[in-house]
Amino acid sequence: MTKVVLDKTAMQRALTRITYEIIEQNRGLNDLVIVGVKTRGIVLAQRIGERIAQLENTKIPVVALDATEYRDDRTVSQPTPPQLATPITGKNVVLVDDVLYTGRTIRAALNALMAAGRPQKIALAVLIDRGHRELPIRPDFVGKNIPTARTEKIKVQVAEIDEIDQVILA
């Protein structure tokens, strides 16, 4: 059974609120860099970047991050540090992903980020937090908490890739 847990409007509103919260918590836009975890995290990061631009008339760097080589279920002995489009050393990084589940993807992303530079601070923004963490990782900005069973699947769909904006629970 598939259920839409967030429709297009609810998704928009969640991203809007996260954007306001980022400005609020970061106390402005100083040294802010938004990093999207591929694939859908990048789209969400871009949308947050666009929202900040609309609001503050300032372009914040939005960077894509591929942390695949740093995953703990891959056997790359010497991962190549990612080449980021913007240096992140000394910056306030907001890491953006679609779903936070076990925390393993974020762990990989954190390692990849650390390999690429030394940020002043890293915060985590996710559209959905579905629980079941296996690592001591928690988000700073959450679109929606959706308690799930491990057997369930959460899928975030974005218009840029999936031709529709919605979050479904299957």
Partner: peptide
């Protein structure tokens, strides 16, 4: 305060939000 809503047909701020506090 950060402008969040604008009137389309005339120059006026119709919504704002505090930059640092949860106030809108």
């Amino acid at each position: 305060l950060l402008t969040t809503h604008l009137a389309v047909n005339h120059q006026e701020v119709l919504g704002f939000r505090h930059r640092f506090l949860p106030v809108f």
